[in-house]
Each structure stands twice: as C-alpha cells, then as structure tokens.
Nucleic acid binder design. Structure first.
Length: 490
RNA sequence: CGGGGUGUAGCGCAGCUCGGUUAGCGCAUCUGCUUUGGGAGCAGAGGGUCGCAGGUUCGAAUCCUGCCACCCCGACCA
C-alpha cells in the first residue's frame, strides 16, 4: 500500500481511518455503518477475548449463549430500557422473500410474523425472561454468566470500531440474592475491566460512576472506565451496571430467601466491545501507523531475512529458522517473512504500519557476525544484538515496550488533566488544551445539561478515587461534594 | 428530516461549462528482465453497460426530466 497516513495534527479523524485502513484492521461494508473486520483486526480481538475471558472465569463466571432474536414484547417490559433502545432497533417482520413481477424480490406478505422480532441491541430482556424460569430459591443464586456475541444498534452516525451498527462484544449478566452482593459484583467487574485496559492494552483509565443522564437505560448505577485519546477526547471503554431489581420486577423474577420470604432478584450487567480496538488505536498509534502493545499484538516479532544471491538466501534462512524456533520455544509470537515477492524495504514499512512491536532484520552481515538487528516500533530505536543473547533480550524488550506504552499514555493523560475553579477557565482549557477537566459539580442535572449545551463537554464520570473535597460549583454557585471529570467525548 | 456535495476501471480523479469519431490519468493488478540492509526500475499487457430510467439530437459521460445511492454539516447518538 503506497497510501500515506494523514498526520494527526492535520486531521485526527482521517488519521484514525488511515491507520485502520493501512494496518488492514477493517473495511467499510456495503451496508452503511457496518464493518468488515479483517484478519489483522480479528486476531487483535481474539487476543482481547482470550485475556478477558480468562479473567471472567477466574472471577467465577461461565459462558453461555442466548439467541440473537428477541420478541418485541420483551423489550416493552422495562420502561426506561424501552425508551433507551426503541429508537435504534432492527426489526424482523417477515420470514421469506418472493419474486414480484413489478418490484423484483420482496418480503412475502403471507410470511408476516405474528410478533415482530428484534435483533438484540443488548440481551437483558431475553436473559431475565430466562432467569425468571431458572430461579426459585436462594439456592439457585448467584448466576454468573457471560456471553460473547454480536449486537445491533441502528446508529445515525458511525465510525469504524468506535460506533458501528453491528458490533462484537461480551455481555455479562448476573443474578444475586442481595443488593450488597450485586453491587460487589459490579465493582469486581469494573476492576477486571480496569486491569485489562491498563495491563493488557496499556491504556490508563479513570474509574467512576455515571451521572443519571449518562446512565444505562434501566440501570440504578452505571460504573465505567474512561480513557483519554490523543486528540484530548474521552472514550467510554467499558461499563458495569448495577441494575437493582428493575429487570427482576419487569420479568417477574422472584426467589424465596432464607427467611422464607419472596424477594425480587438483584441484577448486574456489564460489557466491553470492539470499541476497545478503537481505543487501542487512538491511544498508542502514531503518524507512521498502528502501534500495538506486545501483550495483545498478534505478531510480537517480525523477522525479515535479507539476501541477494542464492547461497546467501540459504544461509540467512537457516539462521532465521533457528531464531524462529528459539523465540517460539520461549512463548514469543514470531513470524519469519521469507516471501520472495516483497523486498525488505517494503516489509519494513509493512510491519511498521501494522504495529508489530519488534522487527528483526537478518542479512549476510549478521550471519557472518552472529548478530541480528533489533528495531522497536514504539520508539524507532535500532540496536544490534548477538544471536546468542537474542531470546532473553526480546523477552525483556517486550516487557519494556509494554510498560513504556502505558507510562507514555499515563503521562499524556496527566498532562492533559486540569483542575479548574471557574467556568471561564473551564471553557478556555476545553478549547485550547482539551483532555479531562476536573471541576466541582453541584450534583444537579440542570448544571450538567447547561454545560453540555454551552460547551459540548459532558461529565464523563464521578471518580471513585480522589473525589471527596467540599467546594463550590462555579457554574451554579451551589455547594459541591467533589470534583468530577468533564471532557468532550466520542 | 433540513442545508450542501458527489456518482466515470479495484481505489483516487480529469473530461461535462461550449455534445463529435478509439473515454483518459495516477496508484493498484498481470508478464518479462534487472533488482533486494527502509515503500525498486524499465518495457509491455489486462481491466469501463461513464449510478439507473426516460427524453432532445445525425451523434450524449457531456444538454433536459425523473429516480436511486453515498458522503459532509446539523438534528440524533446508555
């Protein structure tokens, strides 16, 4: 691909799309708002799934699968839930097509369904319908399930990975006997999400709770992790909801507790999606293309053999293959690109654009001196390493890169987080610097929506850490219990 | 749904104002030779119902009418 990537400071959105395109992560589909996830993108998703899935299982969850179609009547049962999702549902009304002389292929009017089916925008309704049949006693609780699935939300404006009409995600749905246990579950998952974001994705996150206006439709409380992108905008990277007894009441899901009383079941739901890939791109990548953290990179090390004559080819490939075995034995995901159809320079560029953390070059000079050229994707730094030290060196380097990416992202976020005590300063910071702005909030929806209207900034969250501090909301002049995180967001 | 714009090769575009004979350019693709330590060079080749449907005309990518699709801004978006 001879395509140039638009620099970030010229056009950030275009840069984002260029990175995705040149790293071959995804394509636009013939259907507006949908995306084709290409092998490079899907491999990344598989690594994310593997990491998260392991953590879910460690915390006692099991996977299950519920159907993609939900009876329309189910969606009507929880009032706030309907309001939140009704405007963005794909509806199935017919079961077959027929050939019409005038119009060609049309839905067969005779096949109209008795009840419309909704393509799930999320699965609370069908799952709580099911739970109401599974749960009778406190002995049936808790239920700790997760499912990996696709969902559809008919969005007006879409962007690859960040907001698509169909996306892949995991959704956890748990049922508990007590409020305390459900709240604890919500927070356990928030921990899992922050740990995953920070340790695997190398993306630092703010953990917090959403205000009423940003809350999930049907939740009592929505906890979230928020990450700051390089353009100073915030991205909600994961949410964990305490649903109270709302869905249990809507689906009549009661159990007999230890006191022999009937009680509604307490619920949580939580999810992260392919949007995480968008976050990953926007936090680490640069004007040369994708930059991936080693823990999630499908290929951690790309080895490029260099040769001219046939006898060089033989000797170089022999060493390359030995290095490949050694690295693989150490659990490193290495790929030897011995394709003759492409030249070394082209390959160097290819792996840079695709974000492979470490590139090795091995030519006749190296074979002679028993060395390898090692290049880092994140810093561009090149060194020459003795073949005998290579495996240990790479292992250490991958950890260094992983940590380096996190440290850099954290430093960036900290430098872009500003505490302000006046509305004027708030606006100035937002326009000139972007990022998170920590300001006192009086806790009212009025102030929140006034600020949103005037500045397009929203309260990303009320943070769980560093919150308690009495003060005054500079917009309303009313007392405040602490500083919240404001930002313009995706 | 309101405002603006665009449909010509896989992708990006020119040509349209002022109709004319074989519709062109860049990238990509294919073949051959030379190349290979940072996106190779040269030579040749393949690839098009000009968004769709009508109309005007000897003749339409070009003019007229209708339709369709997509994009941008706004509205909307847990």
């Amino acid at each position: 691909m001879a395509e140039k990537i638009t620099p970030r400071d010229k056009d950030y959105s275009q840069w984002y799309l260029d990175v995705i395109k040149s790293a071959k992560l995804a394509d636009h589909s013939p259907v507006r708002g949908c995306m084709i996830i290409r092998p490079n993108g899907y491999a990344l998703w598989e690594n994310m799934q593997a990491g998260l899935d392991g953590m879910f299982k460690e915390t006692g969850h099991q996977n299950a699968y519920f159907p993609i179609f939900i009876p329309q009547s189910f969606l009507a049962k929880e009032a706030e839930h309907v309001e939140g999702f009704a405007k963005e549902c794909a509806v199935v009304t017919h079961s077959r097509l027929m050939l019409d002389d005038e119009h060609g292929l049309i839905p067969d009017p005779d096949s109209k369904l008795e009840e419309n089916l909704i393509v799930r925008p999320t699965s609370e309704t069908i799952i709580w319908h099911t739970y109401s049949r599974w749960i009778q006693s406190w002995r049936d609780l808790p239920i700790l399930l997760n499912q990996w699935a696709n969902v559809v939300r008919w969005e007006m404006r879409t962007r690859l990975f960040l907001r698509t009409m169909e996306f892949l995600w995991q959704e956890g749905h748990t049922a508990h006997a007590t409020e305390e246990e459900a709240v604890e579950e919500t927070l356990t998952i928030l921990d899992v999400y922050s740990k995953f974001a920070e340790e695997y994705m190398a993306v630092p996150v703010i953990r917090g709770i959403k205000t009423a206006s940003e809350r999930f439709a049907g939740a009592v409380d929505t906890y979230c992790i928020e990450a700051l992108m390089q353009d100073g905008k915030s991205l909600q990277a994961g949410t964990s909801h305490f649903l109270g007894q709302n869905f249990a009441k809507a689906f009549d899901c009661q159990f007999q507790n230890k006191n022999n009383e009937l009680e509604y079941v307490w619920a949580t739901s939580w999810g992260v999606s392919t949007r995480l890939i968008g976050a990953l791109i926007m936090v680490h990548s640069d004007d040369k293309g994708l930059v991936l953290p080693p823990k999630l990179a499908p290929t951690q090390v790309a080895l490029i053999p260099i040769y001219r004559k046939d006898e060089e080819r033989v000797s170089v490939l022999e060493v390359a293959s030995r290095i490949e075995s050694e690295l693989k034995a150490a659990g490193i995901r290495v790929f030897v690109d011995d394709r003759d159809a492409f030249r070394p320079g082209w390959k160097f560029n290819e792996y840079e654009v695709q974000g492979v953390p470490v590139r090795l070059a091995l030519g006749p000079r190296d074979v002679e001196g028993a060395t390898v050229e090692v290049a880092r994707r994140d810093t561009g730094e090149k060194t020459t390493v003795n073949q005998s030290d290579l495996t240990a060196h790479i292992q250490e380097l991958l950890e260094t890169i992983q940590q380096g990416l996190f440290d850099k992202a954290l430093a960036e976020r900290e430098s872009r987080t500003t505490e302000v005590d006046s509305y004027d300063e708030f606006k100035t910071v937002l326009d000139e610097k972007g990022g998170f702005v920590r300001m006192h909030w009086d806790g009212t929806a009025e102030t929140e929506s006034q600020i949103k209207e005037e500045t397009k900034a929203t309260i990303r969250c009320i943070p769980l850490e560093d919150y308690d501090e009495d003060g005054i909301d500079p917009v309303s002049g009313k007392p405040s219990k602490g500083r919240v995180y404001y930002a313009r967001a995706y």
